[in-house]
Every structure is written in structure tokens, then in C-alpha cells.
Amino acid sequence: MAKEIERAGIPVSQITSLPNIAAMANSNRIVQAHGIIHPVGDAAMAPEEERELRRSLVRKALEALQTDVEGPRLFK
């Protein structure tokens, strides 16, 4: 799906817990998510801590969107 959107010229940052699969399918801008059941959150965290986690993942995704890439790349 990410690829079809990129084919249309729109960059996609994919936040996923399975970056290897995303890379195998040739998704280009990949950010490691926090976990499969909660890509950008965690019920075990305090609300403010959880929000900070989400901020940092979104920041990473935006950084990826501002980066030119040659092929699948994981942004850590």
C-alpha cells in the first residue's frame, strides 16, 4: 500500500513493528514502532509518558519524510 502511494509521488513514512516485512515488500521509509498491539502507544505507561513516546515516533516519521532515500531504509 505504501508503495502504491509512493508510486503516485507522495512520500510515506511507515511506522511498523515489523520493519523487516515492510522492507521486504519494498516500503521505502520505515520507522520502528513501539509494538504490534500498540504501534504508537503503550497501556503500561503513564499518560504523559505515553504521549512523549508518540511524539518521538511521529518526529522520527517526519524526519524520514524529509529525507531522500534510495530504497527501503529503517529510521532508528
Binding site: P11, I15, A33, I37, L62, L65
Partner: peptide, 14 residues
């Protein structure tokens, strides 16, 4: 997305 005038996408995957 093109029709919406979107410039970039954040896709969250489980």
C-alpha cells in the same frame, strides 16, 4: 490522497 492535495503520509501498521 492526490485529490485531497496531500503532500506526505504517515502510515501506522500493526
Amino acid at each position: 490522497l492526490k485529490a485531497d492535495g496531500v503532500d506526505a503520509v504517515i502510515l501506522t501498521s500493526t
